[in-house]
Write a protein that binds this DNA or RNA. Structure first.
Length: 358
DNA sequence: AACCGAAGCAACCGCCCACGA
DNA sequence: ATCGTGGGCGGTTGCTTCGGT
């Protein structure tokens, strides 16, 4: 309300690091008389500082109950948990961590925990697996790096899914998991196949997968496709090696790819359906022989696992049909919607495999 | 060992808001 | 309704530490 900043206009007020002498003056005064009005405190304590500077110095550093030193693992977990609930309410978070200040927690979050979550493939804002554009931006490098070995060693013939897992950087692979999972629910064949249908489906996927993360793509559901294309480095993706119909030799290889990717970590097919996003049944319904819709499979898995969502990756009660049958059908579909035989085929195949390894 | 750039870290700044007088 | 004050938070700054050459 028109109030000028605390220290504006106070000529000669010292700024910068506090000296031990200043600290002592401040501590002695507060311990003897309490801080009272922070605005009047500096003059009363004999300090050439503004009141706010004194308050911050006291609350963030000089207070006797401040706990110094690196945060413990338990504190880290608590901060992450609280942040997932409270967001950037650092002071609220700090009240749950005795001896820690909001500023300290904020700094620790920005320098450590944020990066840590990002490295785990978790969006530090939403605390959900990243299915956003940065994920896509990382795909070309990931896939190109993997393709470099596989295509050379196999005479340019096959993608070895197990090798993909082994060779991929762990963090990037988690991002890939998120995308594949989302793709499995949304990468439907176009009703009227055309050269752009695959892209349209992809856009629908992104719109759906970002429904929970409003703001990431400019908020709301509206997508600027040209912007999206630019950010996805689409051109780079299209230049990746073409995919053949070769498939992993063992379904176990595939299911292993998704170990540890549990529902609640990301967008489940049911979540997408609930959001009004692309139906999770599309892939299997329209592409592959197995008649089981993914939504039903998810639910069954949940039931079989006593409510603990499997993430659709390890439910042993739902045998899938041979991936190879599905791949044949899938490839026919892919041929329809993709005229260039690009890397997108891989994602399509993986999404199908994902949906059939539930 | 010396240098240098990157990363980490503590602390401050500026703006804003809630609340009470 | 207005003003003064304390407090919250995002962003920034400058120093220190670390790791590579």
């Amino acid at each position: 309300m028109g109030r000028s900043p605390c220290c504006d206009g106070e000529a000669g007020v010292k700024k910068g690091p506090w000296t031990p002498e200043e600290d002592k003056l401040l501590v002695d005064y507060i311990q003897e008389k309490g801080h009272g009005s922070w605005r009047r405190l500096p003059k009363l304590a004999g300090l050439n500082r503004c009141g706010k500077s004194c308050r911050l110095r006291w609350t963030n550093y000089l207070r006797p109950d401040i706990k110094r030193g690196r945060l413990t693992e338990d504190e880290e977990k608590l901060i992450i948990h609280l942040h997932s609930i409270l967001g950037n309410k650092w002071s609220s978070i700090a009240t749950k961590l005795p001896g820690r200040t909001d500023n300290e927690i904020k700094n620790y979050w920005n320098t450590h925990l944020r990066k840590k979550l990002l490295g785990m493939g978790i969006d530090p804002v939403t605390h959900r697996p990243r299915t956003d554009l940065s994920l896509l931006a990382g795909l070309p490098a990931l896939l190109a790096a993997t393709a470099g070995n596989n295509f050379a060693s196999a005479g340019g013939a096959a993608w070895d899914m197990n090798a993909l897992r082994l060779q991929a950087d762990a963090a990037k692979f988690q991002l890939l998991q998120g995308l594949v999972r989302a793709l499995a629910t949304a990468a439907a064949p176009a009703p009227a196949p055309s050269a752009s249908a695959g892209m349209d489906n992809f856009m629908a996927l992104l719109a759906a997968s970002n429904g929970n993360n409003a703001g990431h793509l400019g908020g709301g559901g509206g997508l600027d496709q040209s912007m999206l294309l630019q950010q996805c480095q689409w051109d780079g993706m299209l230049n990746l090696p073409p995919l053949t119909s070769s498939a992993p030799t063992s379904s176990l290889q595939i299911s292993g790819l998704f170990d540890g990717f549990g529902a609640g970590d990301g967008l489940s097919s049911t979540e997408l359906v609930d959001q009004g996003g692309a139906s999770g049944s599309n892939v299997t319904d329209a592409v592959a022989p197995p008649p089981r819709p993914m939504v039903a499979t998810d639910q069954e898995c949940n039931n079989n696992n006593n409510g603990r969502a499997s993430g659709g990756m390890s439910c042993e009660e739902t045998p899938a049909s041979s991936p190879f049958d599905g791949l044949d059908s899938l490839n026919l579909m892919v041929d329809d919607i993709n005229t260039d035989g690009s890397w997108k085929d891989l994602l399509e195949q993986m999404s199908w495999l994902n949906s059939n390894e539930l």
